[in-house]
Design a protein around this nucleic acid. Structure first.
Lengths: 335, 335
DNA sequence: CTGAAAGCGCTTACAG
DNA sequence: CTGAAAGCGCTTACAG
């Protein structure tokens, strides 16, 4: 196999011009079917591979998309965003694009340092996965490359794809109420992230609709302002069900409850959110809400590709519904 | 900010040639310091970004490396290779390269389908992360792009970076023996993967050195030929310690032992390998061997970059030592 | 249906 | 120290 076969090599071998070869290989009109077939065959025989670089330079597109994930989301226990990335990579591949992952260090975020792929024009746009600070998010909106935020938004004018946290938690709480629960606590620091806030509001809406008062002692914090997990302070009057802002917290809560002598779900029901590894590590396995990563990834990819071709495309906030996964952590307590 | 600033734009503005701009920006000789400074300043002011595509086409390098991970290694519970990928991406970044992740589907592997980045010449070489079937591995060795296998090898002639499974398990078993254990079982299907095999042989070497006979009933399988986990068949004479081929299996073993009424580590010590999430999910937390991902990633990256510049570079099998992490799953039983 | 010309933005020789 | 010329491999627009 020769080192580098170019269109010109094929052209010379067949006694045609490289323009014709280009047309034939790209299925453009202006070549007879017979010649096209012969060219394609010869290309295969000679082991020809398109040089995307040359094509990209001519067209001004790299057919690469940068995916930025803040480093802190890729801890030892947090594979959530990496799994998300996997779906993004697949979706990009499906549209003929490649993904270039950029792991954003806390330092670069603080110093408003843009990824090298930006400075080197290696990508046509960015997907920002997960929450970054406001200044960094704003910086990305100012550059001349389009950006789509995935699983995070910070401002009205941003194009983003989000889990419908609000609606998911609303439906999950409805489910508990249908099972007879009326004393339902929410577990999560509602000042911490916007997704916890939205989930809390969905829980609250469900209470409102069912005329169940919101009780302050039923809002149980799980982490401090810096996101560090803290010990739960359980209410004096125990609820019959706990709605946790995520599976990891639900997992820890189940542990804590068991240590205090409560049985789950017989004494307390517990539900989570995300359907990550903690949902099935917990015993009993958790009823939870599964984020629809495939659909979210596919949407974000479609959006960024469209935006890279037409800078004026606007999408706004796009919400994708999750799905309740029913497992064994909820007890039916109505008669 | 103008859409696209080129070297020529800078040149025109300063009344010099684009060759001079290129030299100045690339810190090549042939420009006066004064002019170089002025050019760099103007470039910054005009918001110039290098078009890597053009540079790459000229030089014949893309400064991208493809990282291939078989899909089956990225399950819901297996974030190991994605964490590995993170380190690879960081190491590549450090050397001025970008990584393009390719998730290899079972189908593509079966049909010997090469990643699109290969056909599009988007990468200078590949890092293959994790085990693929022999045919696929051979295919990769035949293409004209270099490849480095990471955490897997299949043949003498391959350049690869491996955890020293053998030596790690040897040291870990030595540690158990130093703690007084002499009845030590190995848990893992020793016909399943080469890394389990090597770990087993390290365990065996430690037994040999200490004149402890290898007992057949102390080799406990954990999975069938297809890699599916099976129930453990525990020996009639219980050992005092179990050496598990990985943390996940150790985690399950601890569960099984507890259900049977054994206390860990009081009645049986258990050790794992990998130091993944299961090591700290297990109670007690597992003594295990930590794979040195940083060093392995850095080595693999250095190797693939060198190989992309010099096709004749050969490295062979490079082994990287792991490190024992001491936790609470081993009981000292000597007097 | 086919191809000569020009250009994408850069770099590498080479000449002044 | 500075720059005109050529070329990397492709595609687009135009002419025949």
């Amino acid at each position: 196999m020769k080192q580098r076969v170019t269109m010109r090599d094929i052209a010379r071998k067949l006694g045609v011009s490289s323009v014709t070869v280009s047309k034939a290989l790209n299925d453009k009109e202006g070549v007879s079917e017979e010649l096209r077939k012969k060219i394609k065959e010869t290309a295969r025989e000679m082991g020809y591979r398109l040089n995307t670089l040359a094509k990209a330079m001519k067209e001004g597109y790299s057919y690469n998309v940068g995916v930025v994930i803040p480093e802190r989301f890729i801890g030892d226990t947090q594979s959530f965003y990496l799994r998300f990335y996997q779906h993004i990579a697949k979706a990009l591949d499906h549209y003929g694009y490649c993904s270039i992952l950029h792991i954003l260090t806390a330092e670069d975020e603080e110093q408003l340092q843009l990824p090298r792929v930006y400075n080197e024009r290696k990508v046509d746009g960015f997907i920002m996965l997960g929450q970054v600070n406001k200044e960094y998010a704003s910086l990305f909106q100012q550059i001349e490359l389009p950006v789509v935020f995935l699983d995070f938004y910070h401002d009205q004018d941003v194009d983003c794809v989000l889990t419908d946290n609000f609606f998911g938690m609303y439906e999950l709480t409805n489910h508990l109420i249908q099972c007879g629960h009326r004393e339902i606590a929410f577990v999560g620091n509602i000042y911490s992230t916007s997704s916890i806030q939205d989930r809390f509001l969905g829980y609250y809406k469900s209470l409102l609709e069912h005329r169940i008062p919101l009780r302050e002692e039923y809002i149980i914090s799980d982490r401090d302002e810096k996101g560090k997990y803290i010990d739960f302070v359980l209410p004096k009057n125990m609820p019959t069900a706990f709605v946790c802002n995520c599976d990891q917290v639900a997992y820890h809560l189940v542990h804590t409850l068991k240590e205090l002598g409560y049985r789950v779900p017989e004494d307390c029901s517990v539900v989570g959110f995300d359907n990550d590894i903690y949902a099935t590590l917990a015993e009993p396995n958790l009823t939870t809400v599964q984020v629809n990563m495939e659909e979210m990834s596919d949407l974000a990819v479609k959006m960024i590709i469209e935006k890279s071709k037409d800078r004026n495309k606007k999408y706004g906030r796009v919400l994708v519904k999750g799905q309740i996964i029913y497992r064994d952590s909820v007890q039916r307590i109505n008669d």
